[in-house]
């Protein structure tokens, strides 16, 4: 079991020499980064450099893919989440996730949230919980009259906000977002970004994005990932700093090339 530290630490998640493998292939190597409380941390980088793989390692979702393994540590509130005594189900309960493709359950809007709360033994007023979750996800006004329609009947952007509402209904401590806006149009994207600024007050957010403007606009810290090494190349974080600095005065030449569009 994980215990909550009473003295709120500055860093919620901390990785130590993290390496992630698919079978024998080392996909991510040597990651040391600290994710700060109530901040938005963005992970950027070219396709195939291991951003999503790294994000999934933060709540052990990677274990659902056959043949993955890790070396090193992921410390969450002072506890290694890969330690033997830690149940991955509890890790995912406390570190929620929003995926690239909106994936509401094929149930009603209400049930999407109610089922999630119920499996964790929620005994309070379900109507209130559904309403407050949808309000926090800025979706309540659009769906309050059709709570019992299928979640799949909503538009893509609404579905994604429903997924966010579902994730925050169980009050996680961290929300991981894997390119949450990549399947959405610019207006829906903007809504998600505004929503993230709201959610930041209560949650720590880590987001993977392809969109550098999004990272620059929305995040406080940015991790730049890239393939490196000789021969079989694996992804690593080449620079991790305040977003402002990454986009204006990066210390690594490759970061500068990438964020200014001169890469490759």
């Amino acid at each position: 079991m994980m215990t909550n530290n009473n003295s709120e630490p500055k860093y919620v998640i901390e990785t130590q020499d993290l390496e992630i493998y698919y079978g024998d292939f080392k996909a991510v190597t040597n990651v040391n980064m600290k994710i700060e409380h109530n901040k938005i941390t963005a992970i950027i980088g070219p396709s195939g450099c291991g951003k999503s793989t790294l994000l999934r390692a933060f709540n052990r979702m990677n274990e659902l893919y056959a043949g993955t393994s890790i070396k090193g540590n992921v410390i969450f509130n002072g506890q290694d989440i890969y330690a033997k005594e830690v149940d991955p189900v509890e890790v995912r309960y406390r570190i929620g996730m929003v995926f690239q493709k909106p994936n509401p359950f094929p149930k009603s809007i209400y049930e999407n949230i109610a089922w999630t709360a119920r499996i964790h033994g929620y005994k309070g007023n379900m109507d209130e919980l559904v309403e407050s979750s949808l309000q926090q996800a800025a979706l309540w006004d659009e769906v309050k009259d059709k709570l019992h329609q299928s979640g799949l009947s909503l538009s893509g952007g609404q579905q994604q906000r429903l997924c966010i509402a579902r994730a925050i209904s169980i009050k996680p401590e961290v929300i991981l977002m894997d390119e949450p806006a990549s399947a959405l149009d610019p207006i829906a994207t903007l809504k998600i970004e505004e929503l993230m600024q709201e959610l930041k007050k209560n949650y720590t957010i880590t987001i993977v994005t392809h969109n550098m403007q999004q990272a620059a606009r929305a995040s406080d810290y940015t991790a730049m990932m890239m393939l490196s090494g000789e021969g079989e190349r694996s992804g690593t974080v080449i620079e991790f700093d305040e977003t402002k600095k990454i986009f204006t005065r990066p210390s690594d030449k490759r970061t500068e090339d990438y964020v200014t569009g001169r890469f490759g």
């Binding site: 659902l64 995912r92 309960y93 929620g96 996730m97 995926f99 994936n103 359950f105 997924c163």
Partner: peptide
């Protein structure tokens, strides 16, 4: 896979995922 991800992603156990999502679908 997205449905399994959704279920595991909100901290459902394997049994809850199988019973509530995989079997009905």
């Amino acid at each position: 896979r997205s449905l399994r991800n959704a279920s595991y992603g909100v901290g459902a156990t394997k049994w809850q995922t199988v019973w509530s999502h995989i079997l009905p679908n």
